[in-house]
Design a protein around this nucleic acid. Structure first.
Lengths: 355, 355
DNA sequence: GCCACCTCAGTAAACGTTTACAGTTCTGTG
DNA sequence: CACAGAACTGTAAACGTTTACTGAGGTGGC
């Protein structure tokens, strides 16, 4: 771990100037003989280019940051999974920030763009405050926001369509004959909480169902709180026959509580989650969920940012990813047939010792 | 997005030298009057320190990289979840690399330490080749390897104990009366594949059970391949009464196939996974799994690296995280009681229209 | 054989900091 | 009031690159 060689070391060993070394290393036109000498010296010394010095001069770090509210949330992980390869393919590294949904931390991340350690930022804030918008306007590098921002905000924006998503779910529940459909939501001052709450009211209206305050309970976006909220709702309205949950974790919490209370899912109460995380397909019973296209949103965000990075300034764009309803056992009662239809052997060909 | 102010801009506006500006910004002893002028100028100009220039001079980037085989694998995500907060608390940023388990990519990451864009690296390679070890020895920054490396390798190392883990699982299955215990493993040339395969053979021996080649099938570490491999094993040995799977995804694939073949889990075939990912608890039936302490390993790795970063060179350390068996329905037949015991209301207090 | 031109290489400045060192101003003492 | 010493500030070099500019050497045309 001694101090590594620099272009000065190479220049000395090859008997040329540092400018020539730089030119050779960057593939600029140079005499064959010089190229040979420099390459040989670089090889012998095990030279590796210093990215920091290079960035200082070129004003490009080839790094991009992704700031999410909570690294434990599978939705963000789904995004990371898509963002990473897109950036990697273009030669960018991914820097991760987990802000715990603290506005001050998010603002900090936006400010820190001025430090120039990244070329751009993808951010997915749970709440968008005025200060967010002000800092955003003054940001020193391209930013893409995942999650809705007020119309007219001059920033690339990738949106989910919670409204249609909730509508899909309620239509589905209504078709199954459910009429007392509860909502277990997250905080109303978050972007998803607000939009899902409004969409719920709207969808009820469209279906001709009354809006009943008792059928709505607010918690946060985690399983444990989801369970608590679902329990509270059940206490108030024991006759509820379906629960629309603002995300999958809440839905899993709700299922826990329903099961503990002796109710069958979906026979007694149907449950719908949102986000279609890995957990939805794997859970028991498998969970009907509204996919808001986390993966697609991540990919779109990365592509928008990359476009800005490579092609420079342009008008901000808004991309909206359409939702999809994935019907599973928590509403239909039927587990989807496994997609792995490898031919299995006969069921019970036991070899003797039977029970 | 114009060019931001530098300490030169501030120096000019405040009427002092750049050295004074730097001193004020770094909190070094300075006359009050100067501090005031500099702070005022910095404030007015909205100055933000350039991290790249600073790193060039200080030779510290306050960034750490984490290189994992596959960003889609929940095990690595569990690690990221633990690594991130530890680093963040110490003022380090996390850079993510997904190498797709390609050795050349991993070597590249190790080499790129020479570029000095990170102060250290945590790496979790699936396979450890001689070239890994050579490059490791020449690495230009502290490295922590998650996953076993040959004894004597001069590198901080965090290990899982697959051997004991597999042993725990087989003991459990044996106690349940299972005697024809299959193994669905990943590739034998990977670190986990090799150790789990060996541990399986050893544990069988300790239990006095014969090792039967037909009971072992190799696939990869994904659900679909797990299903394929389990199907192949079942075709050969339809009488198998338990499946030990090298990770949870394989186990989920196996459950899919068992179900499709009409077998009941665990009545006909008990299934054990490994890694205890989120999916294990959420799946249907919930999956008995051997936790190899992914979270603890991530945390330990981050702490080892941080210690090196803050306290400098020292003898390499090896940390081994003990495994734990989490018994769930895929072997016991009983779903664990939900940990959310919020008091739910009476089961069926419907309001009239009964069924 | 001279000159214009082309190719290539070297010098030096720049990117934005930090910091060693030297220099200046101030404070207090004799 | 002079001077020692303390307290502070400014100059300049350094970190490792890239690159504009200049200059050296070679080639070819007339």
């Amino acid at each position: 771990m001694t101090d590594g060689p620099t272009i000065n070391t190479i220049a000395a060993r090859a008997g040329v100037s540092i400018a020539s070394v730089s030119r050779v290393l960057n593939g600029l036109p140079t005499r064959q003989e010089t190229v040979r000498k420099v390459m040989a010296a670089a090889e012998e010394l095990g030279y590796v280019r210093n990215a920091v010095a290079r960035s200082l001069k070129s004003r490009r770090t080839h790094q991009v940051a992704f700031a999410m509210a909570d690294i434990g949330n599978p939705v963000y992980l789904a995004m990371v999974r898509q963002i990473q390869p897109v950036l990697k393919a273009a030669g960018y590294r991914l820097v991760l920030h987990s802000t715990d949904a603290i506005a001050a931390d998010e603002i900090d991340v936006l400010r820190s763009l001025g430090e120039r350690y990244v070329d751009g930022l993808i951010m997915s804030p749970l709440r968008v405050t005025d200060e967010h918008l002000r800092t955003l306007a003054a940001a020193r590098a391209p930013v893409v926001i995942i999650g809705s921002v007020p119309d007219g905000t001059r920033v690339d924006n990738v949106r989910a369509d919670s409204r249609t998503g909730v509508r899909l779910a309620l239509d589905h529940l209504h078709q199954l004959g459910r009429r007392r459909i509860g909502l277990v939501n997250g905080p109303l001052d978050t972007v998803p909480g607000a939009s899902r709450g409004a969409a719920y009211a709207e969808a009820l209206g469209a279906l001709g169902l009354p809006y009943d305050e008792d059928l709505v309970e607010i918690g946060d976006f985690y399983r444990q709180e989801g369970a608590r909220a679902a329990a509270a709702l059940l206490t108030r309205r024991p006759d509820v026959d379906a629960l629309m949950c603002a995300n999958d974790l809440i839905a899993l919490g709700a299922v826990d509580v329903l099961r503990a209370s002796g109710r069958r899912v979906p026979a007694d109460v149907a449950v719908v989650g949102m986000d279609d995380t890995d957990l939805a397909a794997a859970s028991w019973p498998s969970l009907t969920s509204v996919s808001l296209g986390s993966a697609e949103r991540g990919k779109a965000a990365a592509e928008l940012l990359l476009d800005r990075l490579l092609n420079g300034e342009r008008e901000p764009r808004v991309v909206t990813v359409p939702p999809r309803l994935l019907v599973r056992a928590s509403t239909s009662g039927r587990e989807p047939t496994p997609q792995y239809t490898a031919v299995p052997s006969e069921p019970r060909t036991t070899d003797g010792a039977a029970g």
